[in-house]
Structure formats: structure tokens, C-alpha cells
């Protein structure tokens, strides 16, 4: 097993985080750091963008920042 594969950037993982609480893009990127997933920065950005487009989360502004969230 790859040492860098302890966290996986999947739609299900993103869904779980966004159902729990609203998050910014930066919050999400912190959850899926490249050193934890083994993906490159570019892959992380691309995959996360695809997942967010599919999930189509609701958005709200908290402390002047766009946050994404999903209702259960």
C-alpha cells in the first residue's frame, strides 16, 4: 500500500465534510493535503473542482468568505 494514500479525495469524502459544516475552498484543500492524498497540487485542484461541480453545494457568505455546504 502507498504510504501517501491514507486520505482519499473522493466525492463521498467531500460530501461528508460539507454535510457536517460549511467550508471554504481553502478549508477543503486543508482536508485533502497533497502529502496525505499523494496527489499533485494540480490534480487536487482539478479533482476537487469536478467533485464540487457534481455535488453543486449550497453557498453562503460567512465572515466575508464564500462557504459551501450540503443539507442532509
Amino acid at each position: 500500500t502507498p504510504s501517501s494514500g491514507d486520505i482519499q479525495l473522493t466525492e463521498e469524502a467531500v460530501r461528508r465534510y460539507l454535510t457536517r459544516k460549511p467550508m471554504t475552498t481553502k478549508d477543503l484543500l486543508k482536508k485533502f493535503q497533497t502529502k496525505k492524498t499523494g496527489l499533485s497540487s494540480e490534480q487536487t485542484v482539478n479533482v476537487l473542482a469536478q467533485i464540487l461541480k457534481r455535488l453543486n453545494p449550497d453557498r453562503k457568505i460567512v465572515h466575508d468568505k464564500m462557504h459551501f455546504y450540503l443539507k442532509e
Binding site: 471554504t24 475552498t25 481553502k26 484543500l29 486543508k30 497540487s41 487536487t44 485542484v45 482539478n46 476537487l48 473542482a49 464540487l52 461541480k53 453557498r59 464564500m66
Partner: peptide, 20 residues
Amino acid sequence: SSSEADEMAAALEAELNDFI
């Protein structure tokens, strides 16, 4: 580094811009 995180967040937001 935090600047790399900032760059990634900016790239991600740019990717999502059309969509948002």
C-alpha cells in the same frame, strides 16, 4: 506552505468561477 495553499485555493476558485 500557506502560499501554496493560497495558490491552490485561487486556482480552485478560478475553476469554479463559471459555475458559481
